[in-house]
């Protein structure tokens, strides 16, 4: 994005065409998480804490390798560990890095009432601007992935930024930098999509995972975090990844028809009352007729 403004279009004293003119630049970024090569080392969890300046907080032990039950306002990146029994009776540990998906059609942003509390950049990153957040929690209602988390201390909501601060100066997100197996990749959306499809094909053709595939859900217009799954037909196995995520229907109902009906009713009501007054005017007290007057 930032490069777009410094793209050279004319050069003084230059013979011939401007180098790079007509080149198609893609600014849409994407993080690729290959769950099939994740070893559950949690380096990304630590890197996320370090870069974003959080310290580790107390958590609960739930008979699992998982650090905590779900991401927290000060813990944006969590490997979800899921024991899965395959048809042949053997056990598989499915590990999925959970974080904000940076939806193309973000439910959090759709629901938010505060001017400027959530923005979506042209590169696809959905970023919360805590200075403008009022802590209403509407984003929690709007997100289909259970990502925004309310901080009772700050009375504001926090989530993964896709390291917008790093990406905007040409660095890759901290989690990507830390991953020792290379199961995390960062690049343009089309590059990552291509790499993911290649890997899924490899899993299908070579590794015997017939249902391997890429998770880039169309219900939210695609996401800027995509997964390679051994079993793309059952994303729920990976710690509750929704099969067909979309902005909740109730949020649509609330933000679209209800808003317009409500606005119409309120404005119509005010106009109606004003017209009523102009037409019939005030009700005034009447003199009491003699038979009802005087002491009883």
């Amino acid at each position: 994005m930032s490069q777009a403004s410094t793209e050279i279009i004319r050069i003084s004293g230059h013979a011939g065409a401007v180098p790079g003119a007509g080149l198609n630049r893609e600014f849409q970024v994407c993080k690729l998480v290959d769950t099939t090569t994740c070893i559950g080392c949690k380096a990304c969890e630590v890197a996320c804490l370090e870069w974003n300046g959080y310290t580790f907080t107390q958590t609960s032990f739930n008979n699992s390798y998982q650090t905590m039950p779900e991401t927290a306002w000060n813990y944006w990146n969590l490997i979800k560990f899921n024991e899965h029994e395959r048809d042949d009776g053997s056990m598989m540990l499915l590990m999925r890095k959970d974080q904000c998906m940076h939806c193309e059609e973000p439910g959090c942003l759709e629901a938010c009432p505060a001017d400027g509390a959530i923005v979506q950049y042209a590169n696809g990153i959905v970023d919360f601007q805590e200075a403008h957040c009022i802590g209403c929690g509407y984003c929690v209602t709007g997100c289909p992935f259970n990502i925004p988390k309310f901080s009772p201390e700050a009375h504001k909501v926090f989530k993964c930024t896709l390291c917008n601060d790093r990406v905007s100066v040409g660095l890759e997100p901290a989690c990507i930098k830390a991953c020792p197996t290379g199961c995390l990749h960062f690049g343009t959306k089309s590059e990552m999509k291509e790499l993911a499809e290649f890997r899924a094909e490899q899993l299908r053709d070579v590794s015997g995972f017939a249902d391997a595939g890429v998770y880039d859900p169309a219900g939210v217009g695609g996401t800027h975090v995509i997964y390679v799954l051994h079993d793309a037909k059952n994303p729920e196995l990976y710690g509750g990844l929704p099969k067909d995520p979309h902005i909740p229907y109730s949020v649509w109902l609330w933000k679209k028809p209800l808003k317009w009906l409500g606005n119409l009713a309120m404005i119509g009501g005010i106009v109606g009352l004003a017209l009523h007054y102009l037409r019939v005017g005030p009700k005034k007290e009447e003199p009491i007729p003699p038979e009802d007057r005087g002491p009883s």
């Binding site: 929690g137 509407y138 929690v140 209602t141 259970n146 909740p248 109730s250 949020v251 109902l253 609330w254 209800l258 409500g262």
Partner: peptide
Amino acid sequence: HILRYVAILIHA
């Protein structure tokens, strides 16, 4: 979390 969907529709 379905409770939040119901609550916001009722409240509004």
